[in-house]
């Protein structure tokens, strides 16, 4: 795995130069590490700590605050299903159960073949099509059990 310094030294330097203090540089650097390392590896967190002068624990705390930062490797397809109010009353709890059973994993986990990672997501701003989910950023609305099956089957 390339380090940030190896893969994107220029960008990292630009971030540290552009932003006023070490705390403010940490989030752009986390994005950078995500891009270069595919997920936020412990080594990447330590490297950001060394670059910003923050402690590794603080960097992990910052990364962990934002649930979209991947602190574990993700599968090929990242399924995020919304369970906020509109989706909830339109049947999200049943769909969540269906996804768990179908994939055989809990929320936050990845299938053993590395294809699917299942996560909750807060409101996707698509309540008119509730219940909805997104896979790798692409949104799917008006979900039913059957529709979910079709979507998953259509993925290679």
């Amino acid at each position: 795995m390339p380090t940030i310094a190896e893969a994107a030294a220029e960008e990292a330097r630009a971030i540290l130069h552009r932003l006023p203090n070490r705390h403010s540089s940490s989030i752009p650097l986390l994005y950078l590490a995500w891009k270069t390392c595919a997920w936020l590896t412990p080594a990447a967190l330590e490297e950001i700590a060394a670059l910003t002068g923050l402690s590794p624990a603080t960097v992990e705390g910052i990364a962990g605050f934002y649930t979209m930062f991947p602190l574990h490797p993700r599968g090929k397809y990242h399924i995020e299903i919304c369970d906020n109010i509109s989706c909830y009353i339109n049947g999200a709890p049943d769909l969540k159960n269906h996804l768990r059973n179908k994939l055989g994993i809990e929320f936050g986990q990845t299938t053993s073949d590395g294809r699917f990672t299942l996560d909750h997501v807060e409101c996707l701003g698509n309540c008119c099509e509730a219940p909805c989910m997104q896979i790798n950023g692409k949104e799917y609305g008006r979900l039913t059990v059957q529709k979910i099956n079709e979507i998953l089957d259509s993925l290679d």
Binding site: P42, L45, E46, S55, P56, A57, T58, V59, E60, G61, G64, F65, Y66, T67
Partner: peptide
């Protein structure tokens, strides 16, 4: 030590 995660999941932890 740092506060890891957020909201209801917040916890005190060390790096890894």
């Amino acid at each position: 030590l740092a506060v890891m995660k957020r909201g209801n999941d917040s916890l005190i932890g060390t790096f890894l």
